Simulated assay, not measured.
Amino acid sequence: MGGRVLIVAGSDPSGGAGIQADIKTVTALGGYAMTAITALTAQNTEGVFGVHEVPPAFIAQQMRLVLSDIGADCIKIGMLHSAEVIATVADVLAADAPDVPLVLDPVMVAKGGHALLESSAVASLKARLVGRARIITPNLPEAAALAGDDGDGGSLARRVLALGPQAVLLKGGHGAGDDVTDILLERGAEPETFVSPRLKTRHTHGTGCTLASAIATGVAQGLAVRAAVVRARAYVLEAIRTAPGYGKGHGPLNHGHTVRPFA
């Protein structure tokens, strides 16, 4: 086991997304997962039905206790939901983990359409965390919200990179067509395009959380950003392809496809 990943995100009781998906992913890729829970959600594969916010001071306490004891080789951030929580997390990072690389998944809307980030908090996310990220992993709608308008993938990636992160992985799953095109743009480098066949399935719950945590695990284990992205994409594609078929809506992935049953 190698690579300590502190995950700062919300909980999904159905196990497909959020903290639960993050822990499975980090473990399946050989890392050590730790968590600071930012919100409790009531959800399943059919949607999000309620959100119970964790007090910001308690989020900070969770983060500081883990960082001061075990430490972290990478921090993955998911659902933060409010400007106050964003400010709290940013303050802890600045004081307690200034040099730890950050993978930021700007979670804004759940798969079923429920808003997971207050619209007023987008400016805080841009001001406090986007520029701190080693890599940010928005989907097309999230990138448009961060950039302030729509555009093609290449221009969106450039505008998000201009906000200050070291790299952007623009996820193309929300696009049209038989292929999914992701764009990786690192500072000082030319954009690189990754194309995969679009899998015809409804079992895609938690793909964004899973991909970001897989990248974070690679970064924590010393991989360069591109290598971490390549491995993470391969892991997620196989997790979708072998999804167990649970639930009536957007079902979960097979996070454990790398794991051999214990005899």
Rank of each mutant, 00 (worst) to 15 (best):
A234L: 09
V236L: 13
A110G: 10
R231E: 12
I86P: 01
K76Q: 08
H205M: 05
A227S: 15
F58I: 01
L80D: 00
H114D: 11
H174F: 02
P55G: 09
A157N: 01
R260P: 14
V225A: 09
P141D: 00
K248N: 08
G153S: 15
L237F: 07
V219Q: 11
A214V: 11
G247S: 02
A60D: 00
A228P: 15
H203D: 14
T207D: 07
D149I: 01
A97N: 08
Q166I: 03
G16F: 07
K248P: 05
V229G: 09
Y32L: 12
R128Y: 04
R132H: 11
T181I: 03
A143C: 07
G113A: 02
P13L: 10
S14D: 07
V85I: 13
A87I: 02
R187V: 12
G148K: 10
A145L: 12
E53Q: 15
A33F: 08
I240W: 10
P106A: 00
L146F: 02
H250K: 08
A212R: 05
G15Q: 11
E46V: 13
G173Q: 06
G164I: 02
P106T: 01
K200G: 03
V54C: 04
G188E: 03
G15I: 01
A57V: 13
M63E: 01
V130P: 12
E186V: 02
T204W: 03
D99G: 03
G78D: 08
Q61T: 11
T242S: 13
V54L: 05
T258A: 01
E118N: 12
G151V: 10
L185N: 01
K111E: 06
A121N: 07
A21C: 04
V195K: 15
A145H: 00
G222I: 02
G206Q: 02
G154Y: 12
L116I: 08
G151F: 14
A72F: 02
A83Y: 10
V229F: 05
L156F: 09
R233C: 00
L102M: 13
G78W: 11
P197E: 00
E192D: 12
G131Y: 08
T181Q: 10
A133E: 01
A97F: 04
A60C: 07
T207G: 10
C74I: 10
C74N: 13
Y246F: 15
S155H: 10
T41N: 04
L161C: 07
P101V: 04
R202P: 05
